[in-house]
Design a binder for these strands. Structure first.
Length: 128
RNA sequence: GGAGACGGCCAGGGGGCCGCGGGGGAAACCCUGAGGAAGGUCCGGACUCCGCCGGGCAGGCUGCUCGGGGCAAUCCGAGAGGGGGCGACCCCUGGAAAGUGCCACAGAGAAGAGACCGCCAACGGCCCAUCUCGGGCGCGGGCAAGGGUGAAACGGUGGGGUAAGAGCCCACCGCCGGGGCCGCGAGGCUCCCGGGCAUGGCAAACCCCAGCCGGAGCAAGGCCAAAUAGGGAGGCGGUUGAGGAUGGCCCGUCCGAUGCCUCCGGGUAGGCCGCCUAGAUGAAUGGCCCUCCACGACAGAAUCCGGCCUACGGCCCUCUCCCUCA
RNA sequence: GGGGACGUGGUCUAGGCUGGACUAGGACACCGGAUUGUCACUCCGGAGACCGCGGGUUCAAAUCCCGUCGUCCCCG
């Protein structure tokens, strides 16, 4: 997998974004809020929402770039997904490299937690 | 060494790896890619539409002088007057004898006003004394120096003068008007004459004067154009004229029930142009490492340009004041 | 990106145009007291604001002027 990040990896259309917000799964971590929509197509697509709560234009740009950098270097984590990442205000206080690492760490953590919970729900369903 | 003042400059550099926007190319690849404030949106202009606009009112902006640049906003230089600072230096700026309005509280009196305390006893009055000189009261009155009020009290200081006083008179200072001289001018000199002085403050109160300004804004505006709904759009002629185009109002102007002619279009999602030698439209400049003493501050273009204001790191030139040493 | 409005006790607001005893007023909320067996209602009394912030004009600023910060609304 090449570590590139072109247009094909960006969530651009209004209707695509609306679909992720309406039907996507919502995952919360300390620094981010995720909206994840699984799909057939393998190409991962990303959208970063950096609101005014993060600070001025410079701070918001810095956060967006850090999130995109983390996504770019670990795109395999998001295969078969459309993802919207909404950083929380605390994210603006971290240095960019650190923020990129935390993105992947926190997403893996919450994804695995969801997977285990789903697995356990499946077991309980079998028992009943 | 420490406090400042003025003016100017820079906005991390170099290397490696992985990436992003735009342009070119068949491809490899090459070129290019944020700021001095890009910011706040406070002014002005270009540009576009409002059938663009013609007149007036209203409204807005600017405001010492001269010169220069600019379409304008406004900037630069040299000066004038007033104020602040020990100083380098900085700040302010049309008109208050065109009119209207306001000047609370305090105070006797707040604009050509006024007498609370006070001062006086010349004049009138009353009382005592009386040969005469006189003495007293402060009633009518005279005065505005001193006290007191206030942000501000209708020239200041000194002398003469007086019953006490007062520009009442005089000297100096200040003020006003005129002349003269200097300066393109704002103004200056105080050489001469006149006036004893009249003319308080506020126009970031209304206002007056001079100059400038039509309104809205690129989400302006134009083009292509699914689904759905469904008949309109343009031009010409034209009687009354509600109503409308108009922007805050008035006038003017134009449109306007209808007739004739022509055309098939209008428009949402979406896309394109506008949009640029940065030129995006989920919107591009970044991440990591090494090094240079050093993380550097404020901060990220969205139609473009000129100015104003605000935020902020560092360096340099010149200058001022203080301390210490020689 | 562009256009506009508003900041006054804990909350909602009046006053601002025409500056001055405005010690900034009112309602709700709060505190104390009275009433009641108790609570509510009602009555009496009380506290609470550097008028978003910083400059300027003026003798004097919540009010006028400039700058700045914040909140909200409208235009695709």
């Amino acid at each position: 997998m090449s570590p590139s990040f072109g247009r094909e990896h960006r969530l651009r259309q209004r209707r695509d974004v609306a679909r992720v917000f309406q039907h996507g799964q919502r995952l919360e971590t300390p620094l981010f809020s995720f909206r994840i929509l699984p799909k057939e197509e393998p190409t991962a697509r990303l959208l970063v929402v950096a609101g005014r709560r993060l600070g001025g234009a410079v701070a918001r740009n810095r956060v967006k770039r850090a999130v995109r950098e983390g996504f770019r270097l670990n795109k395999d984590v998001f295969d078969h997904m459309d993802a919207v990442v909404i950083p929380r205000p605390g994210a603006a206080r971290l240095r960019p490299g650190e923020l990129s690492e935390r993105l992947i760490e926190e997403f893996r953590e919450v994804r695995d937690g969801q997977r285990n919970a789903a697995h356990q729900r499946g077991l309980r369903a079998e028992e009943s």
